[in-house]
Deep mutational scan, measured.
Amino acid sequence: MTSCHIAEEHIQKVAIFGGTHGNELTGVFLVKHWLENGAEIQRTGLEVKPFITNPRAVKKCTRYIDCDLNRIFDLENLGKKMSEDLPYEVRRAQEINHLFGPKDSEDSYDIIFDLHNTTSNMGCTLILEDSRNNFLIQMFHYIKTSLAPLPCYVYLIEHPSLKYATTRSIAKYPVGIEVGPQPQGVLRADILDQMRKMIKHALDFIHHFNEGKEFPPCAIEVYKIIEKVDYPRDENGEIAAIIHPNLQDQDWKPLHPGDPMFLTLDGKTIPLGGDCTVYPVFVNEAAYYEKKEAFAKTTKLTLNAKSIRCCLH
C-alpha cells in the first residue's frame, strides 16, 4: 500500500463567511444568496454554514464600524470581559468565536472560507496562513488546477512579526479568498463568478477527501510576504508620492531593483532599492491607505505537500 500522510479526520463542519468587511460585496451577495438557497454549497455528509460576519458594517456598506474585524481574533480580544464599552467588532468577534470556535479547541469548525474583495488587480487569490499544512496545500492545488487556465495565486502570510489574527483563524483550516479588482461597494459579475467557482472547487475537494480519495504528493507556487511598504510621506505625515503608473495593476509581476515604484507630484520617480527582485501584491489597495500600506513585497517559492487521505471509520 502506498505510504501517505493521513489527515486527522474527515471534514464535518464548514463555514463560509461574507461581510467580514461590509463594503466587499461579492461575499456579502453570495452568502445572502446561499442563506436563501444553499443547494449549490451542500455536499453529502458535510455541514456547510453561510454566515454574515459583520452585519452592521454590511448594512452601512462600510469596511467596519469601530475597528477591523479581520485583525482582532487574538486571545487578548477574544478574552476581554464582555461589555457595551467594547468596540462593536470586538464584541462581534467574541460572538463569532462562540459560534464557530472556540479558537484553538477541538470544537472549532474544521474549515472557514472568508470571502473578500480587493481594489487591487490580484485576480483569484487564496490566502494561506501555514506553509506546513498538507491538507490546505492539497486543497489549493486542486482549486488552482480546477480553475486553469484562469490564474489563481496563493498568498502566504506566515511571518515572524506580522500577526494578522484573522476572522477565519478560529477554524482548524483557515482559508482566505480574495478576488479583484473590484471597487468597494460595487458588485461585478465576473468577480462574483470567479469567487463562486473557487468555493465550488473547494467544496468538491472536501467531498472527494471525505469519500476516501487519496491525493498524491503535489507542489504549489506561493508568494510569501516579506514586508509592507508605506507611501513616501512629508514631515507632516502626508502622502508625498503615489503608486507609479508602471507599478499600478502589476500585482504578482516581478519588481526589480531600480524599477519605478512611486511618483511625486513634481514628476520624480522613486525606484525600488535593494538588490532583490520582489513580487508586489495589494498594490494601491483602497482599504490600506489608513493602514499606511502602499503594497506588500513578496518572494516566490514552492511548497510541497505529502499525499493525504481521509481516515475512514
Rank of each mutant, 00 (worst) to 15 (best):
K13S: 10
F29Y: 12
D114H: 07
D190C: 09
A202F: 01
K59Q: 08
K300I: 08
M261A: 14
N133C: 15
P55G: 07
A240Q: 14
L126V: 04
E84P: 07
R43V: 05
C4W: 14
L147N: 02
A165R: 12
I177Y: 00
F73Q: 12
R132W: 05
D251I: 01
S3H: 15
D230P: 15
F51T: 06
E211W: 07
S83P: 07
A165T: 10
L312G: 12
I65D: 15
M122C: 12
A202D: 00
K172Y: 04
K59G: 13
P102A: 10
L247F: 05
E24C: 14
G79R: 06
I65Q: 13
I111M: 07
R233C: 10
E227T: 06
G45F: 04
P50F: 02
K80G: 15
F17E: 00
L46N: 03
G101N: 10
P160K: 09
K13A: 04
L303G: 01
T299C: 15
F73P: 15
E238K: 11
T26N: 01
D114C: 05
G45K: 07
D74F: 08
Q250E: 10
L147K: 00
A286E: 09
C61H: 11
R91G: 13
P280V: 03
I52P: 01
D234W: 05
F205A: 02
T125G: 06
G38N: 11
K292Y: 08
E129Y: 10
I96V: 13
I170F: 07
G237F: 04
V58A: 10
A241Q: 01
C67Q: 10
P174A: 15
R71V: 09
T2Y: 14
D107C: 10
Q182K: 03
Y64T: 07
K297T: 07
E293G: 06
E290L: 10
R168D: 11
K224Y: 03
N236F: 07
G185S: 09
A148C: 09
D130G: 05
Q138P: 00
F17W: 10
G212A: 05
D266A: 09
G258P: 07
E84I: 09
L46G: 02
E178K: 08
L272V: 10
Y88T: 09
S146K: 11
D107H: 13
N121C: 12
D114E: 09
L150S: 13
E47M: 12
Y164W: 12
N117I: 02
P183H: 05
T302A: 06
C218V: 15
T298W: 02
I308E: 04
L128F: 06
T167K: 08
L35W: 07
L203P: 01
K306I: 10
G274T: 05
K297A: 09
Y64G: 06
N236R: 09
F17L: 07
H313N: 10
V179L: 12
T20H: 08
I143V: 09
I220Q: 04
L147R: 00
I137W: 01
D230V: 08
T299A: 12
Y289H: 12
I270W: 05
H141C: 04
P254F: 00
A57T: 05
T26R: 01
L255T: 05
I191M: 06
E24I: 01
N284E: 03
K292R: 14
K253H: 10
E47N: 07
L303A: 04
D234P: 00
G22R: 12
T269V: 12
D230E: 13
T167V: 09
I239P: 09
D230Y: 13
E158R: 04
L301C: 09
R233M: 07
E285H: 13
H98W: 14
I65H: 12
A296F: 15
N23H: 13
Y223Q: 03
N304S: 14
Y288I: 12
Y173L: 13
D204V: 02
D85F: 13
K144V: 06
E47F: 06
L115W: 00
V154T: 06
K224M: 04
K163Y: 14
L99S: 14
E293V: 14
K163F: 07
C124A: 12
D66F: 06
D190I: 05
V90P: 10
N121Q: 06
D234K: 15
P217N: 10
C67A: 10
D251N: 10
H159L: 11
F29M: 12
K291R: 14
M261V: 15
S105M: 12
I6Y: 10
C61A: 13
T166W: 10
L265H: 08
V175K: 01
L136A: 04
K306N: 07
E285G: 09
C67D: 11
I16E: 02
I111C: 13
H33W: 12
A286H: 07
D266L: 05
I177T: 01
K60V: 10
E95K: 15
M82D: 08
M139Y: 00
D104Q: 10
M82Y: 11
E129Q: 15
Q12G: 12
I239R: 09
L263A: 08
I127E: 04
P280I: 02
A241N: 03
E76G: 12
H33Y: 09
L247Y: 03
K228F: 15
E158F: 01
K103F: 14
E106M: 12
E8V: 12
I308R: 00
Q248F: 02
H98P: 07
L99V: 15
T166K: 13
H313V: 12
D204N: 07
K13W: 04
P50L: 06
L115G: 01
Y173M: 13
Y142C: 02
H5E: 07
D74I: 06
T118S: 13
K49V: 13
V28M: 11
S131N: 06
T44R: 10
I112W: 03
E238Y: 06
Y164Q: 07
N304G: 07
D249E: 05
L128Y: 01
C276T: 13
M82G: 09
N133E: 05
Q94T: 15
K144C: 09
N210F: 03
Q182I: 15
P280E: 02
Y279H: 08
G38R: 10
K80N: 13
D204S: 03
D204T: 02
R309P: 05
P257Y: 02
L203H: 01
C276L: 10
L69N: 07
H5M: 08
H33D: 06
V48H: 02
I157H: 10
S105L: 09
E238V: 08
A219N: 14
K60M: 14
D114I: 03
P151L: 05
I170R: 07
F282V: 02
K228C: 11
D130T: 04
P102T: 15
P183G: 11
E84G: 08
C218D: 00
G18D: 01
N236V: 15
M195A: 10
E221C: 04
P160A: 10
I206D: 02
T125Q: 00
T118E: 02
I11Y: 05
F215P: 02
L162V: 09
G273P: 15
M139R: 00
M261Y: 00
K253F: 06
E24Q: 13
H244D: 03
A287Q: 15
W252I: 04
I137C: 05
I206A: 06
F135T: 03
R233F: 12
Q248K: 03
K297P: 03
E8Q: 14
G176F: 08
L25D: 12
G27Y: 02
G212Y: 04
Y288G: 15
A171V: 13
Q94N: 12
A286W: 09
G18P: 02
E36D: 15
S83D: 06
M82E: 10
L263M: 11
I52M: 10
T44K: 10
V175Y: 01
F262Y: 03
R43M: 04
K268Y: 07
S131F: 06
M261T: 15
F135V: 05
L255M: 09
G38T: 11
L272T: 08
Y231I: 04
S307W: 05
E158G: 11
T145H: 12
E211S: 12
H10Q: 14
L312F: 11
E36C: 06
R91Y: 12
E36L: 15
I226R: 07
Y142M: 03
D230K: 07
L301P: 01
Q194L: 15
P245C: 03
Q94V: 07
F29I: 11
W252A: 15
N210P: 02
Q194E: 06
C61Q: 09
L247S: 00
L303H: 00
I41V: 15
P183Q: 05
V222S: 05
E40H: 02
A219T: 15
G27C: 03
L263F: 13
Y153R: 13
H244M: 01
G185K: 05
R309M: 11
V58P: 05
E214G: 07
F100W: 07
V48M: 05
K291F: 08
F295Y: 05
A171S: 12
I177Q: 00
K200P: 00
H159E: 08
G38F: 15
Q42S: 13
N117Q: 02
I11F: 08
D275Y: 09
G212P: 00
